[in-house]
């Protein structure tokens, strides 16, 4: 039971911090204009952060023993290639994930 309470508190903390992050800029810059450097960061940072998230997702891939992270690298390349070609995120994600699920079973 206490494990469930702790888990509920964890969900509450994740929810509260996420909500805080989404509301904070609106609370800080409520009245006046947004400073130019903040707008600049708003323009360039999302891409950098998404890049970091890709690295974060691949952190457990092992480059130095078989299969040398090949399922991850091949599947990610397939996703990037499909995205460039078709520009349909859904197609890229489903196809890339299917390839990954196949590769980890055969490699």
């Amino acid at each position: 039971m206490s494990a469930n309470i702790h888990a509920a508190l964890l969900v509450a903390v994740m929810s509260a911090v996420t909500i805080l992050l989404r509301f904070l800029p609106f609370l800080i810059f409520r009245g006046g204009n947004t400073p130019a450097y903040i707008s600049y960061l708003g323009g360039v940072l999302p891409r950098a952060i998404i890049g970091m998230l890709v690295i974060y997702c691949l952190r457990e891939a092992d480059l130095f023993s078989a299969p040398f992270a090949l399922p991850e690298l091949i599947s990610a390349a397939v996703v990037a290639g499909l995205q460039r070609w078709k520009r349909n995120s859904l197609v890229s994600i489903i196809f890339g994930t299917a390839i990954y699920m196949l590769l980890i079973r055969v490699m």
């Binding site: 996703v79 890229s92 994930t97």
Partner: peptide, 19 residues
């Protein structure tokens, strides 16, 4: 369902490629 978690990686790779 082993490997289904790659859908998150794929989401970010697609999003990164698109930007």
């Amino acid at each position: 369902t082993e490997g289904i978690e790659f859908s998150m990686t794929a989401l970010f790779v697609a999003s990164f490629t698109e930007q």
